[in-house]
Amino acid sequence: MSDEPIEKVSIIVSKGSLDGIYPALIMANGARAEGIEANLFFTFFGLDAIHKKRHEHIKVATVGNPGLHVATWLGGLPGMSAVMTHVMEKQIAELDIPSIPEFVEMIADTGAGMYACKASVDLFKMDKDDFIDQVEDIITVGEFYEKAAGGQIIFT
């Protein structure tokens, strides 16, 4: 491996949880801050991050998430995910990290490209109107590889 600087990244967002989406957004924003070209591709549940009606309601998973250190039976109680999400959102805001809708808008302003995966959009019976205006296009996997050409691909 050479030490050539990274000039382009394509980041795939496949998860729809708070902890699934933030790392990808931070990496995309950080890439642009370094002057690295960045594209974001939203697929499967990751589409919620750019969904007009859903991106304000992204939750932390409280079941099947051992890193949270909450017992599974407790995590499954009604309202647990909402409570934990609220706690985490508060901590995120204290660090002056933007909310997901604000962050996605900011990243689009940095010049990063935003795309939705066609197979997932078809699967969930969505269309372009379901997504925020910053989404440039709904593209196929082949088109994704064309756009990703010459850069690094990161799957989250």
Binding site: R32, A33, M106, D109
Partner: peptide, 18 residues
């Protein structure tokens, strides 16, 4: 400041900064 801070408080938007 980071880009986020610049965009929020410098009076220049993120789009303009880039």
């Amino acid at each position: 400041p980071t880009v986020r801070v610049l965009g929020k408080t410098s009076g220049v938007t993120v789009k303009e900064l880039y």
